[in-house]
Computed example of a mutant assay.
Amino acid sequence: MILDFIESPQVYSNILYITSAFSLPIHIFGGYCILYRTTVFMKSVKWSLFNLYLWSFALDISLSLFIQPYFCSPAFAGFPLGIVQWVKGIPMDVLVVCATAIFKVVPVSIISMFENRYFVLFGNKGLWQYLRYPFLMLNYALALVYCISIYIEVPVDQNKARQFLFKSHPQACKVITDKSKIFVMNFEEDIWPAIRQNALTSFVLAEIILLGVLIKMEMNRAIKNIQSSLSLDTLQKQKKCIRALNLQIAIPIAIIFLPAVISAILKMKSSSQQGVDNLLNLTTSLHGVSATILMIYLQKPYRSAFLEIFCRGKRVTSKNVHMMIPSRLSQF
C-alpha cells in the first residue's frame, strides 16, 4: 500500500528531492515572468503578485528541499530531513517558527493580492483607502502572534517531552531508530492548538472568499451601470484578469484543503497515520509550483513568454499564440 511505502523517511525524503528538482526551474521562470514580462496593463498587480509568488516559492522550497519536515503522527513533534539538518547551529525551535511563519503568510499574501485588486479598481477614493493598511497589518499580526504562541509552547526540556510523547503515543515515529533527534513542539494533552489553528485558517479563508465575492459584485455592478471612472473596455479586461487570478489561487488552495479533509477521513479508517501525513505534506509541497504553472498558463503575457522562449527560440506572434492555445483560454 502506498501509505505504508511513504512512511519510510528515506523514501519520503527522496520523493521531496525529486519534487524540488522539478519545481525549482518552474519557480525561477515564474519569477522572471512577473519581473520582466508583466505588461503595463497588469502593472498595478505586479508587486502583490510577486509577493504571493515569493511566499509560495518559500513554502515549496522549505517543504521539499531545505526542511522536509517529518511529523511523528499523531503527536505534535518531528524532525527535518532536508539539507538544513547538515547546517550546524540552527535552533530547532527557531526553525519551527520560521517554517510556521512561511506557511501562515502564504494565505495572508493571497488576501493582500485580492485587496490590491479591490483598492485599485473600486476603493481608492473612499473610506477603504484609510482602512486598508490597518486591515493588512491585522492579518500579518495574526500570523505573527500565532508563530509566537508556537514558540512559547515549545518544551524547554526535550528529554522529558520525548518521554511524555512516547508514553502517550507509543506508535509515533515507530520507524525511527534514533529517537533523540525528534523535536517535540507541544506535548500537552490540550485541544487549544487545534482550535487556534482551525480558527485562524477559517478566518483567513473567509476573508479570501469575502474579497473575491466583493470584487465580483462590484465589477458586475460597474459593468452593468457604467458608473465607474474606468472605461467598459478596461473593466472587461480587468474582469478577465481577475478571473484568471481566481483560478490561479483557487486550484492551489484546493490542493491544500482537499487533502486535509481526505486525511482526516483516512485517519479515522486507517492505522497508517504516518503515511497519511506524509502524503499530505507531499501534496502541500506542490502548492506553489501548481500556482506558478497556472499563472503562466492563464495570464496571456506569461503564456506568450513561455512560447517565445521554449518554442525553438522563435518570437511568438499573437496569431501563433491564438492557434496554439485553446480558444477559451486565449480570451484572458
Rank of each mutant, 00 (worst) to 15 (best):
D4P: 07
Q10R: 12
V11E: 10
N14R: 14
N14H: 13
I18E: 01
S23C: 11
L24I: 15
L24K: 12
Y32V: 09
C33D: 06
L35E: 09
V40L: 13
F41A: 13
M42R: 09
M42I: 05
L49R: 08
F50H: 06
N51I: 07
L54A: 11
W55D: 04
S56Y: 09
S56C: 15
I61G: 08
S64L: 03
C72Q: 01
A77G: 03
A77S: 01
G78V: 02
F79H: 00
P80Q: 03
V84I: 10
V94N: 06
V96A: 08
V96I: 11
A99P: 07
A101W: 13
V106M: 00
V106E: 00
V108C: 01
V108H: 01
M113N: 05
M113K: 05
E115T: 11
F119E: 13
L121K: 04
L121T: 06
F122K: 00
N124D: 11
K125C: 12
Q129C: 09
Q129I: 13
Q129R: 15
L131V: 09
Y140A: 01
C147A: 03
I152K: 04
N159F: 12
A161R: 02
P170K: 01
Q171H: 08
A172L: 01
C173W: 00
V175E: 15
I176V: 15
D178W: 07
K179P: 06
I182H: 04
V184W: 01
E188W: 08
E188V: 09
E189K: 15
D190Q: 04
P193F: 01
P193I: 02
P193C: 00
I195H: 07
I195T: 06
Q197F: 11
N198G: 09
L200D: 02
V204N: 10
I209W: 01
V213E: 11
M217I: 15
N220W: 11
K224Q: 13
Q227T: 15
S228A: 01
S229N: 15
S229W: 12
S231W: 00
L232F: 09
Q236S: 12
Q238R: 05
K239Y: 04
I242F: 11
R243H: 13
A244D: 01
A254M: 08
F257H: 06
L258F: 10
A260K: 12
K267N: 15
S271M: 13
Q273T: 13
Q273M: 12
D277M: 13
T283K: 04
L286Q: 06
H287Q: 13
T292S: 06
I293L: 15
L294S: 03
Q299P: 08
Q299G: 08
S304Y: 12
L307V: 14
G313A: 02
V316I: 13
V321W: 14
P326T: 14
S327M: 07
R328W: 14
F332H: 11
